[in-house]
Design a protein around this nucleic acid. Structure first.
Lengths: 263, 263
DNA sequence: CGTTCAGTTGACCATGATCAAGAGTGGTGG
DNA sequence: CCACCACTCTTGATCATGGTCAACTGAACG
């Protein structure tokens, strides 16, 4: 596998050979492997490095005092976990491994060096940061407005496309390690209800999910079921497509009419 | 009122006099006033400027094709609406005015100039960007895990502290323009349920809310009711406090025990 | 093979949604 | 100054989506 980070960042900006070499080096410099269900870093810790996911899945999550847990994002190879360290003194969330996880640890000073000498990379990093913020917004919408059925469908679409953008899909299929309990924590549902909802998705032929393997026979249909619009991922390859089904509101402000056709 | 942006950014970094003068100029250069319930910019538009809120409240929101609307953040004076323009070709959300709104429009080129000549400001801007991402994470938790009662309490705490950090509170009180329908769209509830929940908050003496005016007689009690922990706002003045009730999880990874005492 | 963890099923329940109607409040024009 | 209109807030009755609790099945791994 070539560097997933390179692939990810090229989604946003053109990189030179020198940029790519630098990225490859970053990924190789100081790697770290941790087992599934362990924390990479924990809420309240002082961040010491940025983590680049090389292999496996992680999740960012926050817990409430009584133990309720909300996953706020999944992280897959090529994802860079929070540039927070430059800025924030304390982690406001945890990062946990869902699978065996291989990450590159990039120290503050090294990253700082990269940023001052490789402007393309810097641009791409901030780009990625803004995109991941956009993904957060979409998660708020997902949890706040969509039905259980739509939420799960939406999440499957999102993760499939994100995996696809780093070359981790295989036709209509991809690995999909989160358990139903994980999906529950990501969607604000219970595991029981996630289970029933996935069964409904299966019954309708929208997904095949077995042994950590997800297959989406008809992505368009699943997108429709999840009210999914890829625009928020800001992948340029998808953008043309996104512009077609992009705009959903006529511009009447926060109190406009509630019913409106898809463009 | 001095420049709320200055106040906001000084929450994060020390600014020189020259920095402050530059910020004051940015805020004065090209201002724009729009009426309540109108859009500043709309989902799908190409962003042309960054908007700095000078006066009034706005909200960032996204709509689903069938008209469901989710507010993903409120914007108050001193807030800078999405540095997206540098990066993203299309707005993935809209910004709408909740009140009469006065904003400064900062063009791409001007902002670019600032970024290349005022490193402190640049740092502070990115800081603000990362903090607002952290706020998004908290909103996911709010909508995903908290009960209606906790959600509303949490939102009141957050907005009160954010207003306080730009000097827009007056003792225990502040202006609070969102309607109950707005609060519903922000919390993923219905307006009816928001109404009943606010009544419950009033009955318990946690808030006084009348005519767009919010009073919080006992912020600590409201924070407890909303499971609110100010750490995610990353205000340094609050940080000492945040560290006290900060950590909520023992570090056992995403599958740790579900019950756990408050520190 | 037994233990563990993920997935599945069933019965019942509750939080919050929906629908509908009425009461304040504030702004506008006659 | 008052009448009207629009909008927000409030209340009640009923409903449904999704939660809770509990038991059981089946894979995977040592």
């Amino acid at each position: 596998m070539p560097n997933a980070l390179t692939r990810r960042l090229e989604e946003y900006t053109a990189l030179t050979d020198a940029d790519c070499r630098e990225l490859a080096q970053l990924a190789a410099q100081s790697t770290l492997t941790i087992g599934p269900r362990r924390d990479l870093i924990h809420e309240g810790d002082a961040p010491r490095s940025v983590y680049l996911i090389l292999d496996g899945w992680a999740c960012q999550y926050r817990t409430l005092p009584d133990g309720r847990r909300q996953i706020v994002d999944f992280a897959i190879p090529g994802d860079l976990c929070d540039l927070n360290l430059f800025i924030l003194d304390r982690m406001d969330h945890s990062i946990g491994a869902l699978t065996r996880l291989r990450v590159a640890e990039i120290g503050r000073d090294i990253l700082h060096g990269v940023i001052t000498t490789f402007p393309n990379i810097t641009t791409a990093l901030w780009w990625q940061e803004l995109v991941s913020k956009s993904i957060h917004r979409e998660w708020i919408v997902n949890v706040g407005q969509r039905t259980a059925f739509e939420r799960i469908a939406h999440l499957f679409c999102e993760m499939f496309l994100r995996l696809e953008s780093v070359g981790l899909t295989d036709g209509f299929s991809c690995d999909f390690p989160p358990t139903q309990a994980d999906l529950a924590d990501a969607t604000g549902l219970t595991a029981v209800h996630v289970n029933r909802t996935i069964q409904e998705l299966r019954r309708r032929g929208l997904v095949i999910l077995d042994r950590q393997r997800l297959t989406i026979p008809d992505l368009g249909a699943l997108q429709a079921a999840g009210l999914f619009n890829a625009g928020y991922l800001h992948h340029w390859r998808l953008n043309r497509h996104a512009l077609i089904n992009g705009v959903t509101d006529g511009g009447r402000g926060p109190d406009g009419p509630k019913l409106r056709a898809i463009a």
